[in-house]
Design a protein around this nucleic acid. Structure first.
Length: 581
RNA sequence: GCACCCGUAGUGAAAUGGAUAUCACAACAGUCUUCGGAACUGUCGUUGGGGGUUCGAAUCCCUCCGGGUGCACCA
């Protein structure tokens, strides 16, 4: 429709012998101002030295003369010289019909046949799954799904630190505490034991010089892999934490295609650095460094190989990226989702890599996200707002895993009166809990810090994931009732008035395109909340299933269209849409 | 100190350089309640300060103030 309106304007300008400028067509913020609007008169008014309103009137007159399109009902001038287009009843009922008939409604071709790898989540074996991982996961998964809807060939990657001091810290503490009594306990319990051990070990490392020494000795032993006993425990702990992560991925709805381990890319990265000493890297104080400020004054120097001869994270990152291009040949884009604080050094790493591989320069993109702060009570005042830095290094942090399980437990409690079988209840509670958390993350622009309010996010009043799910479930029961009464969707007899739901539904593919091209899931979240509100409003004021009403069939069709778009939109956010809750 | 990110009602957020800055929570006042009340309607209230660019600025530029993050061998 946008293209048709654009053509109409261009034709009108042509007939009036006015040169076409750089005008835009957009949806007015307020639905009262029509469905589409153009600033064309404002843009060209200056160059032709005419009053924009007069000019707009002239253009409108010409458009009306030209327009025989039954999709447009009214064109008028408003405000400073905007031209507003009001679409016709027929357009809207046509668009509802289209949503029901086109299977892949909502998709686009922005990334047609592009190979894209998205790396996200990145938890470390032997450490807890913390809240930062939850954020990265929610954002990364949503972006992956949005790109899939934009016709990209997407693969999901997870990069995990399986070596390093953190492992020794966990080991140290595990030795002190002794192994769990029940070694056959569920992996989540065993992983929790390991995670706690890590936190304790870290505390000892920081506060106790003797412990610090012991941990360093242990670290070397783990690295050397000569001690059978240590190898055994390592393999066990690695397996347990990885399986526990897999459990969480299942709950969160993520399935990775590639797992990269730090130990596997480490040597590779080191070699890349060594091969480029003199070209890209240089020696300084015994270390190998990259002086990025030589290429861009806003960047800084970073160490890639320490004076002890060990590769740093930066060097490993080089190995990782090269590895990605190896496992996915002809990759067009390597996307990495991480926290904000990594933005600056990622730029340095990217710069180094671009010097080594100029062909990668425009194929790497980092998306960074803010921190999550937890708010315990909804009525907390500003002073009570506790800001918690999500670091698993400090003790008594709430892990991401605990947040998920606690949220689900609250939903279970809320649903205790449902008389369904326990299995369905649990499944739905899981879906709703994940929706609460993910929506809280995805409603904001990724770079911002967010506040997670446990009570509000599950309360379902207003701006929440469960509210979206609720409106879907509600639509679903309307559909079920219609099926019982044998009222089938139809597009012939339509109500005179166009509902807000219809005015929003046809825009869904545009919202998806926009989210895809900007890599910003929050536009979909904002759109869905608006759509849900419009539907609940419609529902509250109209009896949809009504045998006495000849427009009932159309209202059913509209309900189907709504439920399809809501379900698809939730999918793009990584949220399930249960039929009842 | 240098660099980057951020600053929008009491709170949390949205806004492609566009119109009277949108939505939710909270507060206050109502509705209805036989398709799911986990609902709906209304009221209240906002762009950190100052310049500039523009027909038009929350958005772009400058500056000041406030907050966060990063700046050499941790990841």
């Amino acid at each position: 429709m946008e293209e048709e309106i654009k053509k109409l304007i261009k034709d009108a300008l042509g007939n009036l012998a006015i040169e076409v400028g750089n005008f835009t067509i957009e949806h007015p913020e307020d639905l009262k101002n029509g469905d589409y609007s153009t600033n064309v008169a404002l843009v060209i008014a200056k160059s032709v030295e005419r009053n924009p309103q007069e000019l707009a009137e002239k253009i409108v007159a010409e458009i009306i003369r030209l327009n025989i399109d039954k999709n447009i009902e009214k064109v008028e001038v408003a405000g400073a010289g905007f031209i507003n287009f009001y679409l016709s009843r027929k357009f809207f009922s046509g668009s509802v019909e289209e949503i029901l008939n086109i299977k892949d409604f909502g998709t686009n071709k922005i990334f047609a046949s592009k190979k894209i790898m998205v790396e996200y989540t990145d938890p470390n074996p032997f450490k807890p799954f913390h809240i930062g991982h939850l954020m990265t996961n929610a954002i990364g998964e949503s972006i992956a799904r949005i790109l899939e809807y934009s016709d990209a060939d997407v693969s999901r990657a997870n990069y995990q630190g399986d070596v390093g001091l953190h492992v020794a810290k966990a080991f140290y503490s595990m030795r002190k505490r002794g192994m769990p009594k029940d070694m056959d306990a569920p992996v989540s319990v065993l992983a929790q034991y390991i995670g706690e051990s890590y936190a304790k070990g870290n505390e000892a490392y920081e506060n106790d010089i003797k412990a610090k020494k012991e941990i360093e000795v242990l670290n070397k032993k783990i690295y050397d892999k000569n001690d059978e006993e240590i190898n055994k425990v390592y393999n066990w702990g690695f397996k347990v934490t990885m399986e526990a992560f897999e459990d969480l991925y299942r709950i969160l709805g993520t399935k990775f295609d590639f797992y990269f381990l730090e130990s596997e890319v480490s040597l590779f990265g080191e070699q890349i650095v060594k091969d480029n000493i003199g070209r890209v890297f240089e020696k300084s104080d015994g270390a190998v460094v990259f002086k990025a400020e030589k290429h861009n004054p806003k960047l800084h120097t970073r160490v890639f190989i320490t004076s002890e001869g060990l590769p740093t994270y930066e060097a490993k990152e080089l190995g990782l990226t090269e590895e990605k291009f190896k496992v996915k040949p002809d990759m067009d884009l390597s996307l990495v989702v991480t926290a904000n604080e990594q933005a600056d050094y990622m730029k340095v790493v990217d710069k180094a890599l671009s010097l080594i591989h100029p062909e990668y320069e425009n194929k790497m993109l980092h998306i960074t996200h803010g921190m999550m702060r937890l708010l315990a009570r909804s009525r907390a005042t500003a002073e009570e707002l506790t800001s918690i830095k999500m670091s698993s290094r400090k003790g008594n942090v709430i892990t991401g895993e605990k947040l998920i399980r606690d949220t689900i437990a609250l939903i279970v409690e809320k649903m205790k009166d449902r008389s369904w079988n326990q299995e369905e209840k649990n499944k739905v509670a899981e879906n709703v809990g994940v929706a609460a958390i993910k929506y809280s993350i995805l409603r904001s622009k990724a770079g911002n810090d967010i506040v997670y309010n446990v009570e509000e996010s599950i309360s379902v009043e207003g701006d929440s994931g469960p509210y979206l799910q609720y409106s879907f479930a509600r639509a679903n029961s309307v559909i079920e009732k219609a099926q019982k009464e044998n009222i089938l969707p139809d597009f012939e007899k339509v109500p005179d008035e166009v509902s807000e739901v219809e005015k929003l539904l046809y825009r869904f593919p545009e919202v998806v395109s926009r989210s895809a091209s900007l890599y910003e899931p929050h536009h979909i979240a904002t759109y869905l909340i608006e759509l849900a509100r419009a539907f609940n409003n419609f529902y509250g004021h109209t009896l949809i299933v009504d045998k006495k009403d000849i427009t009932s069939s159309y209202k059913i069709a509209l309900t189907y269209a709504f439920s399809f778009v809501m379900k698809t939109g939730l999918h793009l956010l990584g949220i399930e849409a249960p039929k009842r809750m």
